[in-house]
Amino acid sequence: MATLLRTPSAPPIPGRSLVLAPIDRREHFAYLRSRPDPAFLQYPAWAEVKTGWRGESVGWFDTNGTQVGAALVLYRKVPKLPLWFAYLPEGPVIDWDDHDIDRWLDPLLAHLRAQGVFTVRMGPAPAHRRWYGETVKDAVKRGLTHLDQVTPDEIDPVGATLANRLHTRGWRAAGSGGGDDAQPRYVFHLPMQGRGLDDIRAGMNQEWRRGLAKAEKSGVETTVGGPADLPQFFDLLRVTEARNGFRLGRTLEYYSRQYRVLNTEEPGRMRLYLARHQGRLLAAHTMLSVGNRVWYQTGASADQGREVRPSHALQWRMIRDAHARGIPIYDMRMVSPVIDADDRRFGVLRWKLGTGGHVVENMGEWEYALNGPLHRAFQLYLARGR
């Protein structure tokens, strides 16, 4: 079983206490840039994307004053009460391998309690389980309907150990893949490290290779757009939502703000890819990147022209661009753990499996109640909303 390597840029000395303190955006950004794999959701600009939340940057420091961790904390106020819900999306960025996890989390909880927080939710970075593509395909043939029924090919020892440590300290998993996690628990990774583009393409299934050949033969053109193209992207997104029977609940203003804010903090962080055929816009996808990580975020396509495979062409363009930058993994983001071939939710995973990648189950999001009665009332409120 493989283990993910996570080496802090400035490892704290084991056994020594850590101090948590607010930091400014410059310090926060600089620390994350020194790390190889922080999520885009932990950069300070994300607080500007999320309206209705207050953002704060905090850092962990060792006894020498060296910064060894960072987090973006989002606060949501309870109406009419001086109480807050705190959320660290796909964070904090700390050394999750440390056996003494208390020296990281205790200062965080003390800080949040002083801010009037009644519940905190976080998303630890370590993965939990992985299933290779062939394993998933074989499980579908055998009639299994959920990844929980399938023996994983890998169990990450860091994630498994951390889950036990959090549970014994009073943290509770917010969900088990059933929709309670705000960020995707199951994602799809296409590994690219040590592979040439010919190898990656050869590793795709016949449907994908035929789709790429069809798009190329038909003359589908792919380009990188700009903010002026976001309205067309959003129009296609609404068409996609209607066709597939789901709603992301985002507005054009949301995507415009996201594009502006993220690219202001770091030019090129959010890109809009466009696919046209004979002058018609047929598909548009967004891609996010920080450090050595890339995420395919949102895809949209028209009802017409699907026979020329514009989405295949766009994905291949995005894969090529990520590969040219030396990105080790192309993260295709969310998939459902449902593997029932007759279930509509399996469609996205089936399509992504064709690239030759694998499914990763993250640790998911974990909650800690700083005020038990208020936490329980909050859970009842959320349950009624669902």
Rank of each mutant, 00 (worst) to 15 (best):
N164E: 14
N164P: 03
R165Y: 06
R165W: 07
R165E: 12
R165K: 14
L166Q: 11
T168L: 10
T168V: 12
R169F: 13
G170T: 04
G170R: 03
G170Q: 05
G170V: 07
G170F: 08
G170A: 01
W171H: 04
R172C: 06
R172P: 00
R172Q: 13
R172A: 13
A174G: 00
A174V: 04
A174Y: 02
G175V: 01
G175Y: 13
G175P: 09
G175I: 07
S176I: 08
S176A: 12
G177D: 04
G178I: 10
G179W: 15
G179H: 12
D180Y: 12
D180V: 00
D180Q: 12
D180H: 11
D181H: 09
A182Y: 08
A182F: 13
Q183C: 12
Q183A: 08
Q183T: 13
P184H: 09
R185L: 15
Y186H: 12
Y186T: 03
F188V: 00
H189K: 06
H189S: 02
L190E: 04
P191N: 04
M192T: 00
Q193I: 00
R195L: 10
R195Q: 09
R195M: 05
G196N: 06
L197V: 02
L197A: 10
D199S: 11
D199M: 10
D199G: 05
D199Q: 15
I200N: 03
I200P: 02
R201C: 11
R201Y: 15
R201S: 06
A202C: 04
A202P: 03
G203C: 04
M204E: 11
M204A: 14
M204P: 05
N205M: 13
Q206Y: 12
E207G: 10
W208D: 09
W208A: 01
R210H: 12
R210K: 15
G211H: 12
A213E: 14
A213P: 05
A215S: 15
A215C: 06
A215N: 04
E216Y: 06
E216C: 00
K217V: 00
K217N: 07
K217G: 03
S218V: 06
S218R: 13
G219Q: 05
G219P: 07
V220P: 04
E221A: 08
E221T: 08
T222C: 15
T223W: 08
T223H: 09
V224T: 01
V224G: 01
G226H: 08
P227W: 05
P227V: 02
P227C: 06
P227D: 05
A228N: 11
D229Q: 11
L230M: 09
L230I: 03
Q232L: 10
D235I: 00
L236Y: 07
L236W: 03
L237M: 14
V239F: 03
V239P: 02
T240H: 10
T240I: 03
T240R: 10
E241T: 01
E241G: 01
A242S: 12
A242Q: 15
A242P: 01
A242M: 05
R243Q: 12
N244G: 10
G245W: 15
G245C: 14
F246V: 01
F246H: 13
F246C: 03
R247N: 12
R247G: 11
R247K: 14
L248V: 02
L248H: 14
L248G: 15
R250S: 15
R250P: 03
T251V: 02
T251D: 06
